[in-house]
């Protein structure tokens, strides 16, 4: 599989982060990110990425590297194209009529827009969590089991579901009501259920599109803690409006903004991409500095 170390890590005997998350609210987020061990180079990268919606250029010339088992944050004001870039990474933009991608998006060196690449296979390896928790109108169990079922991995389904729920720090809260409808969960629980659903297919990369913007601070803090656990097994790319969140959880940060082009159309542009610490303490670009210091955006 893509991630040999994960099976062992997600075994029921060593639930990642569960004890800590359920014992109380872990508020001491912060410098957890720099402690992360090992990075085996880039899991994904974009080269000269341009994204069009019809004739409209939405994002231009993005070069990014997403290090393996690191958290990369994409930040910037509304309309800067950060979500567009994120949705290119697992070809979710294919679903938008008229969307077109130029340049390369590589996954371990393979262009995911290259000939012969199956977008379904891409999405099985590169999972996604959305802005608004979007559980299916099914039971908690069926939500998590959905991915394995559609991908044909139906063996040991109970174990897979349990591991995914433990991995998303939700198992202890839902283990007695797996058959209940997921809509009965709180917003934060629903979002962790969506994370469990995303990791149940054992992807390699996890894309998160503003995963906390619909949640209260306590639920947000739980998700942030969870990301610190998940990054041991997954490469995470997170889009966030919340600069503090980017500073707390990510290793690298890419700052985007919308620049008017020669016709006056606002085009999403990558301004600066560096280690998070550098971006927040010593940004190279004036626009980055203005944004993170609250002068605009």
């Amino acid at each position: 599989m893509v991630n040999p170390g994960k099976d062992q890590h997600m075994s029921p005997t060593s639930p990642p982060g569960t004890a800590q998350d359920t014992a109380g609210i872990h508020l001491a987020v912060g410098d957890r990110a720099p402690e992360q061990p090992r990075s085996a180079g880039a899991a994904m990268a974009t080269e000269n990425l341009h994204v069009y919606y019809g004739d409209f250029l939405a994002v231009r010339d993005v070069d990014l590297q997403f290090d393996d088992r690191r958290i990369t944050a994409l930040i910037g004001p509304s309309g800067c194209g950060k979500s567009t870039v994120l949705r290119c990474l697992n070809r979710m933009n294919d679903l938008v009529p008229g969307a077109r991608v130029e340049g390369r998006v590589t996954y371990h060196g393979t262009d995911i827009y290259g000939p012969g690449v199956d977008e379904i296979e891409v999405r099985r390896r590169i999972g996604m969590v959305f802005q608004k928790p979007n559980p299916f109108p099914k039971s908690i169990y069926d939500n998590v089991a959905y991915g394995p079922r559609v991908t044909g991995a139906k063996d040991h389904l109970d174990d897979t579901v349990e591991q995914a729920l433990r991995g998303a720090a939700l198992w202890d809260e839902v283990k007695d009501k797996l058959k209940q409808n997921a809509y009965g969960l709180s917003g934060g629980q629903q979002q962790r259920l969506c994370i469990a659903r995303a990791i149940a297919t054992r992807p390699d990369v996890l894309l998160m599109d503003e995963p906390c913007s619909a949640l209260d601070p306590i639920a947000t803090s739980k998700i942030e803690d969870l990301m610190g656990e998940l990054v041991q097994d997954f490469t995470i790319v997170i889009v966030t409006h919340n600069m503090q969140q980017a500073a707390r959880v990510s290793h690298s940060t890419a700052f985007f903004t919308a620049q008017p082009d020669e016709h006056g159309d606002r085009v999403g542009t990558l301004v600066e991409f560096d280690r998070t610490l550098k971006i927040f303490e010593d940004p190279a670009d004036k626009r980055t500095e203005d944004y993170i210091s609250g002068k605009f955006g």
Partner: peptide, 27 residues
């Protein structure tokens, strides 16, 4: 049926047909 349901299904690697058959039609 909200777009989020389609997105959620496709994002875990379901095909269009699986999404129609398992999510959209039942809903």
């Amino acid at each position: 049926v909200p777009r989020e349901i389609r997105d959620g299904s496709l994002a875990v690697g379901a095909t269009r047909w699986q999404t129609v058959w398992r999510q959209l039609l039942p809903a």
